[in-house]
């Protein structure tokens, strides 16, 4: 397992062999409640850090998911189309959204690590 980093918007990115796997955190899915739909980016889409990459919807809310770092989308999690609830049951694993080729690994280093993110979440409540 590669390193995992977090954003203030509650995305996570796990870097495995230079490829980033992106999803939303357990905390984020709890805030949203039962997830009913995930709109995923197109494979091949290039995006800069902070660009709108996906949308995740519950019954009464929709939230944008932003690219945690810049790069190009290489794969999306097709399973979420039929089973969006996977984001609720396994946010950090099977509930990943998309994979991306990372343009600049320095951007990853500037994100929060697990401990910093935990502290950040605690500061929110």
């Amino acid at each position: 397992m590669g390193i995992v980093r977090y954003t203030k918007e509650h995305e996570w990115i796990r870097v495995e062999d230079g490829v980033g796997v992106v999803g939303i955190t357990k905390y984020a899915q709890e805030q949203l409640g039962d997830i009913v739909y995930v709109e995923l980016p197109e494979v091949g889409a290039g995006m800069t850090k902070g660009a709108e990459a996906a949308v995740v919807e519950s019954v009464k809310a929709a939230s944008e998911i932003y690219a945690p770092v810049g790069g190009e989308v290489t794969e999306v999690n097709q399973n979420l189309a039929d089973n969006p609830g996977t984001v609720n049951t396994d946010a950090m694993g099977e509930g990943w959204f998309f994979k991306m080729r990372i343009a600049d690994t320095d951007e990853v280093d500037r994100l929060m690590d697990g401990v910093a993110y935990q502290e950040y979440v605690e500061s929110l409540s």
């Binding site: 739909y37 919807e57 009464k60 809310a61 929709a62």
Partner: peptide, 11 residues
């Protein structure tokens, strides 16, 4: 309803 104005506003 996430398509609609009361949730999605300008989007």
């Amino acid at each position: 309803s996430t398509r609609e104005q009361h949730i999605r506003r300008e989007k």
